[in-house]
Design a protein around this nucleic acid. Structure first.
Lengths: 157, 157
DNA sequence: TCCTTTTGTTAGTTTACGCTAACATTTTAC
DNA sequence: GTAAAATGTTAGCGTAAACTAACAAAAGGA
């Protein structure tokens, strides 16, 4: 199941809208992704064909279990990247979000896992107050880093 | 000047073939990129239109100054990524090469520079015997890392 | 109700980039 | 020097994903 970048964006968007207790419609996705409704319509119908969403004409768009699983995976990859960019490379937040979005499609599952491992185990990033755990997505984008400082101290002698 | 991924692959390939003192022809590129000659022909003619290569029908393909500059830039981005993947995330070489190829198009100039800085300044990677310098591409893919070990020692106490 | 606005769909275009089939040119080998 | 092999080009197809224009359906207000 190899999705295109655009399909990943659709799944991610649907998941995040669903999470907001919203009924997800073509217009919502179009607005979020800043593309036109006909483009979304086509895209969704392809996702339906490959079994990732349920959809009937003029109805709501609902992720299937398979679609939800994939969406979570995509979001996780993007989050790992974003954390790395913001907290390790110290890239400004807005820029990091855009960059993570672009990189998430190119990065493999394996590399994302290794990157996650590097961030959490090697750099030993501090836990969040809210108990963020990259594997069960309680909260996004608020990780703090202490390892960077620790690292700088150590390499300066 | 925003290039497509495929255009970046063309430029990179042409540059690396040129460096081997070879006259670069359509067939060489097709073999290297594992695509057909007609595809290459079209691609090269687009690069010609936008001023990145000189090319006359049945002739040699030669990068313009602008094309060469871009090619070097692309190669540098890929090298930085590859170094990071191999030496920091410890991903197996062949896999890292493929991954770097895919990521290089998505990564921005700024992020590539920050990543380079992180590798060289923060992690303080060891210099190579051959005097590799990421800014003047003497040799690829043989960087050694010591910072990782240093880092592990420091985070384990 | 019925008319307007909002929302959704269909049809057809564009761009990028691969492909095959067919043809043209150039090079090589005898 | 010419025939075969290698190389290059042209034409046209397919797919993905965006677009506009035009039409269809649903929802909401007087």
């Amino acid at each position: 199941m190899k999705l295109t970048n655009s399909q990943e964006e659709y799944l991610k968007t649907i998941y995040l809208l669903e999470k907001n207790n919203k009924k997800v419609r073509v217009t919502d996705i179009a607005k979020k992704l800043k593309i036109t409704k006909p483009s979304v319509n086509k895209g969704i119908n392809v996702l339906k064909e490959i079994g990732l969403v349920n959809y009937e004409a003029y109805g709501d768009i609902i992720l299937t279990e398979k679609g939800k699983k994939l969406a979570l995976n995509i979001i996780k990859r993007q989050d790992i990247l974003e954390m790395f960019l913001v907290n390790v490379l110290e890239i400004e937040k807005d820029e990091a979000i855009e960059e993570a979005k672009a990189l998430k499609h190119a990065i493999s599952q394996n590399t994302a896992l290794k990157l996650n491992k590097y961030i959490t185990e090697v750099l030993n990033l501090e836990e969040l107050e809210c108990g963020y755990n990259i594997n069960n997505e309680k909260c996004r984008n608020c990780l703090r880093v202490t390892a960077k400082n620790r690292l700088n101290k150590n390499t300066n002698n």
